[in-house]
Computed example of a mutant assay.
Amino acid sequence: MASSAKDARAVRSGAALRAALLRLLDDKAFDQITVRDICAEAGVHYATFFRHHSGKEALLDHIAAEQIATLVDLTLPFHEPMEAGRGFHMLCEYIEAHRSLWSTLLNGGAGAAMREEWLHRARIVSDAREPVGSWLPKELGTICSVALIVETVSWWLKQPLHAYSADQIAAILHRVVTSSMLTP
């Protein structure tokens, strides 16, 4: 019983640390946030942080993996080209709602790791599906699609707030990705 109480406490502490970093990212850039800031926001002891993560970058990597999984879950049902617009719309709305986090994930210190994680998850999904009438080899199509999506979203997040709406970026993504993948 003591082990399950300890496990539950570890789960709560881990969740509190992730939530704390997300809240702090709404007000500060990642490089301005310290481990002590995260611990104070989470109500977790400093030493507890290091039982979960080797540093704030490792915590951000964990959040990045969770965020990519969330995006895959949001967009996975929209695999067919005609449904892709809805998937891009959901993706853009989610990113817009979590703009500070995604700005940090894609345009901050975690950008390269984030791109790799996105590609990794996309390959898993792609491997489980048949290609959709693309003239590109399946693996290259996955790489190109992810690059187009990631770089478009990264660019969007660098623009002034409200310069482009989620709807506008979703439409851009739909046209760019769909036309590049399906047009020979």
Rank of each mutant, 00 (worst) to 15 (best):
Q168P: 00
T183Y: 10
P77C: 09
F88L: 10
A29M: 07
R51F: 06
Q32R: 14
R123A: 10
S179C: 09
C39D: 01
R86I: 14
L106M: 15
S13I: 03
T142G: 08
P77N: 08
T178F: 02
A64S: 13
T48V: 12
D61V: 00
T48Q: 09
M82E: 14
C92Q: 07
T183L: 08
W118H: 11
L76M: 09
V72P: 04
E151L: 08
R51P: 00
V150R: 01
W155V: 00
S179D: 14
Y94I: 02
A16H: 09
E139S: 13
N107V: 05
A69M: 02
P160T: 09
I63F: 03
D37S: 12
L24C: 04
L71V: 13
S145A: 13
Y164S: 12
A15I: 03
D31L: 08
I95Q: 12
H162F: 09
L148V: 04
E83A: 15
R12G: 00
A8W: 04
K138V: 02
E96Q: 14
S103E: 11
A147I: 06
P137R: 09
Y164L: 15
L105M: 10
L74K: 11
G55W: 07
A15H: 08
F30T: 08
L71P: 03
I68V: 15
A15C: 02
H52T: 02
I95H: 10
A29I: 06
G108L: 09
R99P: 01
T48G: 04
D27W: 06
A8L: 14
L157K: 09
A19M: 03
T48L: 03
T178K: 08
V150G: 01
D27Q: 14
E130A: 15
A47Y: 04
R18L: 02
A113C: 01
S154D: 06
Y164I: 00
V146H: 02
A20Q: 10
H79Y: 15
P137H: 12
V150S: 11
C92P: 07
R51V: 05
P77L: 07
K138F: 14
V11I: 14
E83G: 01
A166I: 12
R51M: 07
R121P: 00
C39H: 01
L24N: 07
V150F: 15
S3L: 13
S134N: 09
H98E: 12
G85K: 10
G109M: 08
G111S: 11
I95S: 13
H79S: 10
D167C: 03
A110C: 13
F78V: 06
I143W: 04
S100W: 05
A128Y: 04
F49H: 03
H52L: 03
R86K: 13
S154R: 14
D26W: 03
G43R: 03
L22M: 13
W102P: 11
Q159N: 03
S3I: 10
E83D: 15
E130H: 14
F88G: 08
R129M: 14
S179H: 12
Q32E: 15
V125C: 07
